[in-house]
Nucleic acid binder design. Structure first.
Length: 558
DNA sequence: ACTGATGCGTC
DNA sequence: GTCGGAC
DNA sequence: GTCCGACGACGCATCAGT
């Protein structure tokens, strides 16, 4: 029985260690000391996940419920917590600080009991996740409160971070893979095998237990158990991608949502990018999948909303379909999804991931009608690729993907066997009108900036969202100092800023927004330059935003 | 019965 | 999704 | 090249509060 304190001490050491190898050594040594149930839990926890996707459980705890639990456990106000958060930029340190000053209330009687074990914490988290229905938030809060009232400051630090599934100690899937391989290498585990097992199960705890038992090889592809999807890397240009791949399989990059379809006779399951079961939301895809001419199969593709005009609908419309539980058929009629299959993972009892793409494609074409296949052209010609690219964009999609026809299906891998090409979008010059204090690495820095455009009619600035990427650490520090002088108002973690500075912001697409006063927002905004040379009046106007919105992606909106 | 906040998934 | 930083 | 963290908009479900 391992104490939770031991786990917390490990996390502290790992967090304080800079080098990744050293981090992995620490984790590996810890894993070796655990019994089986603890091992399973600890592997997930170190990475900051509480439940593997297959369990279909979620904590349902975010900052709000966490801080409520902390304040109740320790008898401090939410204002105090807000102050600490602004100062530290770290929910974990807030929890530690609050617990340090804890006034024993409520569960004081438990103070006498034994120290928390990993299993204790895991049990409480289970209770938190299971709570649903009326008063469920109270139940979540009470369970967390119980943990905080028994925890030392160090334990509280990691209980808090775990509760919101955000560990930030520098170990992710890659680090844990290496740690498991190192811990159990004598039983035959190596990074390659561990990674493979993880990509097939998506459950690091399960992988670790099997690594220790020496049964990693038993974790294999099975119908009804989703596997990680192969991902595309961003290519520089069509020419460079062709230079990399040579003769490439060229496909449109659809603006939709990824789906992994499992079919077993008449049974169909559909899994999303994060391997959530989304079958119930996508009846027409289920229907389509039933027509696949195979006894059993796992297929990979994209679900795209196609409007009456044959053009893709806004991505926002696709979001209305995913995760929907009610009025599914009604929305399906209004926002019909089409399936474009581009890969085959499993066929009639056998994994085909080891076959080259061109053979998988051949098999796919045998079992699926052309109407549900993504078009594919195999070519080494730059002109041909450029033509397909133009067509994809003109059709309203994102760009193209160039794939190596000789490559295997590598679950979970983002590599140069699949290269995506997207256009460089235009930029907008927008006024910084607010900001938010950051967390973690961005603690005590302004880490996110609210942007506004000019409304020529009224002379007002209308906001259109935030930008938080494209900054170097250095530029962020400078900007924070500069904006500090311009702060007009502070409210929680948000700050209002006197309009004076212009950011040039790149984006993928302009979206209609129900959340911002301009009525528009940017998809994937990133800061590309601070335009010290521009004055407020030279910032872009709403009129320009609207006209860009109407003309984008070959779309003409009347 | 309705609204707003919150969490969590898609990109 | 994007991006920067560390290794 | 790879991994990790610090962040973006949006829409649905759920729950608390009215």
């Amino acid at each position: 029985m391992t104490s939770f304190l031991a786990f917390a001490e490990l996390c502290q050491k790992v967090e304080a260690t800079a080098g990744s190898l050293e981090k992995i050594n620490l984790v590996a040594a810890f894993l070796s000391s655990l019994d089986e149930p603890e091992l399973s839990v600890a592997c997930s926890y170190v990475m900051g996940t509480i439940f593997p996707p297959s369990q279909s459980l979620a904590m349902g705890v975010g900052p709000s419920i966490l801080y409520e639990a902390l304040s109740k456990a320790c008898g401090c106000s939410t204002e105090q917590i807000g102050e600490m958060l602004r100062a530290t930029g770290d929910p974990g340190l807030v929890a530690a600080g609050v617990v340090e000053k804890r006034r024993p209330i409520g569960f004081a009687a438990f103070q006498e009991s034994r120290p928390l074990s990993i299993a204790d914490v895991s049990e409480r988290f289970m209770a938190v996740a299971r709570a649903s229905g009326k008063k469920s938030q109270d139940i979540k809060v009470k369970n967390l409160q119980y943990l905080f009232s028994l925890a030392s400051p160090l334990e509280a630090r990691y209980i808090a971070r775990l509760a919101i599934e955000d560990m930030r100690i520098g170990i992710g899937e890659g680090g844990m893979r290496d740690a498991i391989a190192l811990a159990f290498h004598e039983i035959g585990a190596d990074a390659e095998r561990v990674e493979q097992a993880y990509n097939l199960t998506n459950d690091m705890g399960l992988v670790a237990v099997n690594a220790r038992r020496g049964t990693l090889a038993e974790l294999s592809i099975m119908i009804h158990r989703p596997i990680k999807m192969m991902l595309a890397q961003l290519g520089e240009s069509i020419a460079s991608a062709l230079g990399e791949i040579g003769t490439a399989a060229i496909e449109w990059k659809y603006d939709g949502a990824r789906v992994q379809i499992h079919k077993d006779a008449d049974h169909v399951w559909i899994f999303s990018r994060r391997l959530e079961n989304v079958t119930a939301s996508l009846p027409e895809i289920v229907q389509t999948a039933k027509e696949i001419r195979a006894q059993s199969a796992i297929l990979d593709g994209e679900a795209v909303a196609i409007g009456k005009d044959g053009r893709p609908m806004a991505f926002q419309d696709i979001l209305k379909r995913f995760r929907r539980k009610y009025n599914v058929e009604k929305l399906a009629a209004r926002i019909p999804l089409r399936l474009f299959l581009f890969d085959l993972i499993y066929l009639d009892g056998r994994s085909v991931t080891d076959l080259p793409l061109r053979e998988r494609r051949d098999l796919l074409e045998k079992i699926a009608d052309p109407g549900i296949l993504a078009d594919q052209v195999v070519s080494a010609s730059k002109e041909a690729a450029e033509e397909i690219y133009r067509q994809a964009l003109a059709a309203g999609h994102e760009g193209i993907i160039l794939k190596n026809p000789a490559s295997v299906y590598a679950p979970g891998k983002r590599g140069k066997n699949w290269l995506k090409i997207k256009p460089v979008m235009e930029t907008l010059d927008l006024v910084v009108i607010g900001a938010k204090w950051g967390e973690g690495r961005r603690a005590s820095l302004l880490g996110s900036y609210r942007l506004g455009c000019q409304d020529a009619a009224t002379g007002n600035l209308l906001d259109m969202g935030f930008v938080a990427t494209g900054f170097t650490d250095e530029s962020l520090a400078e900007l924070t100092e500069m904006f500090r002088e311009l702060i007009v108002l502070e409210k929680g973690m948000e700050v209002e800023i006197k309009p004076a500075v212009i950011f040039e912001v790149a984006y993928e697409e302009i979206q209609k927004s129900p959340n911002y006063s301009s009525g528009y927002a940017l998809r994937f905004p990133r800061m590309v330059a601070v335009r010290y040379d521009k004055s407020l009046e030279e910032a872009d106007s709403l009129e320009r935003v609207v006209s860009l919105y109407r003309g984008q992606r070959g779309r003409v909106i009347p």
